[in-house]
Design a protein around this nucleic acid. Sequence first.
DNA 1: CTGAAAGCGCTTACAG
DNA 2: CTGAAAGCGCTTACAG
Lengths: 341, 341
Amino acid sequence: VAGEKGPGRELLTIDDVARVAGVSRSTVSLVLRNSSLVAEATNRKVREAIDRLGYVYNRKAAIRARLSHLIGIVIPDLGNPFFSEMTAGIDEVLNESGWVSLVGSSWDSAAKQGLIVQRMQEHKVDALIICPAADSPPGLVRGVAGNGLPVLEVLRRLDPAMEHYLGIDYEQGVGLAVDHLAGLGHTAIVFLGGELQHSAAAERRSGFECAMLRHRLTPHYKPCPLTRAGAALAVGELFAAARPTALVCFNDVVAMGAMAGLDRLGLKVGRDVSVVGFDNVAESAFVRPPLSTIDSSARQLGMEAARRMLDSIGKNAPEPAGAKMPTRLIVRQSTGPAPAG
Amino acid sequence: VAGEKGPGRELLTIDDVARVAGVSRSTVSLVLRNSSLVAEATNRKVREAIDRLGYVYNRKAAIRARLSHLIGIVIPDLGNPFFSEMTAGIDEVLNESGWVSLVGSSWDSAAKQGLIVQRMQEHKVDALIICPAADSPPGLVRGVAGNGLPVLEVLRRLDPAMEHYLGIDYEQGVGLAVDHLAGLGHTAIVFLGGELQHSAAAERRSGFECAMLRHRLTPHYKPCPLTRAGAALAVGELFAAARPTALVCFNDVVAMGAMAGLDRLGLKVGRDVSVVGFDNVAESAFVRPPLSTIDSSARQLGMEAARRMLDSIGKNAPEPAGAKMPTRLIVRQSTGPAPAG
DNA sequence: CTGAAAGCGCTTACAG
DNA sequence: CTGAAAGCGCTTACAG
């Protein structure tokens, strides 16, 4: 009936495979889904037919299947090494299990993010892993989850009560940085970076504040955009007005920008001013001087997020369990004893 | 007939919308696809019903639609800043036009890549943008394209005859680097990096060779893995055996590793040894000393690739037209005059 | 373990 | 411009 119409050759269907293998379409369907019901001999016959014909499974037509084998990943900035590493980790685990990643970069815009999430739902993703844009509507995640879609928030959380959150223990991490600097005799310590309002920024800030007070020091803040250039500029402004001896940076990108800024001011990092980053991105070990930083293992976090997600899909739980991953201090040469007063 | 079965609430369909809006399902379908056939009043009625019900379009069920609005992106390493920037560029353009990106990282393994490509075909992507793994089977792209799927190779090409390729003019770029160094009086110049066999490596190599011969210099090569650590190590080996005054690096990652290696040897970059990178990734301006490099604008390339792809899908062409993007030299402080003999 | 029938939620001619 | 009918290529009960 169907036959020689349309541009190019006709698509092969499950029926073609069934005919060639000499079985029914239901049986082919079972083989395609690795059912254990199928007899080994039948299985072989069908697979041979598939190979011979070059049939490719049409998952879009599997409209009645419970799973789409698609998972959505939404992050604020794919160009940021931390997020791309994390995405790489998610993608790696997903691929190994036969899923494929739908990724979208929101550029920290709630509007773009809304469109992306909407489209991912249209494509019937089995789950969503999202690091919400800074200006996200508070109900975003709740709304999506309300549609029955499992959601895991990573790194940033819109609603502190949400349990399906996998993040980093920013408070502990920043505390580690402060302890390290205080141990080196620093007292004039500034927290550099972070203008956007989101939980990951707030937690860093409160971690800084707690740790400073614990050491009976006064916390100071210098906000700046999370870019190398922005941080370099901010350092210029900061040192025009004050003379701190140590900088706790929002992340490694900011720290590297700060080091460039200090360099321009003729200040030697690790001697005149100590700098601590956050994330331990790949390049942090290779900048000059190598950066002392807090390791938050982006790749591991991504892999863990994917594992939890697949797990919860497997047992049909609406949301995976969450957690905060601990961090650790990596001491390199960007930190040193406080210069004598 | 259907009703109160299943876990959770029933999914809303186009029929529910039709009922509420008081039109037929065909009309709702037209509205959903922004058809110009629909009267403005009808359009409004339907959209109101959609909003009121919170209906979300089920693209998976649109099994007869010509387009899936899914595009596959396959790259060797999502953790590499060049590839992630490029992916960000592709994703940005795609999202603006209503497409969504299916991304997969092959980790330069043909086997993983094969699975990824297979799955993307199963999900009926409208097109594939791929930077093939180094050990890809030569027929890969041809095979996929043979299925009627538009394919655009980026950065690396399996078959030099394929026209649907968007790359970088590596030969010209490396030539620029050599000209720059030769102009500074360097004669002992080594090309550092690149063990994998693929076109982007071969083109860099031949660009180096041609340019060196043009300046009547002897080309030397030191292969190494494309990681910071690998490059740092290779530099140690290289300088144990020879004493070049300049390094043309495979990319910025290698260049940054090389700078770290030189630092460990007590050599000052930009004075004792000049280093040129390739790519101009974001951090290259912020390492110490700032890296002289060849700009190949990853983001722009990705955006251009996406534009060409959408264009060719729009006019139903099987493949988008290809090209090689020109590069330009960025001089910073990692290069200086050749040290006196 | 296998097959015939009904069904999934859309789109596509086609008629009006 | 709108609707009734048929169809897309699978999966899902159900019977055997």
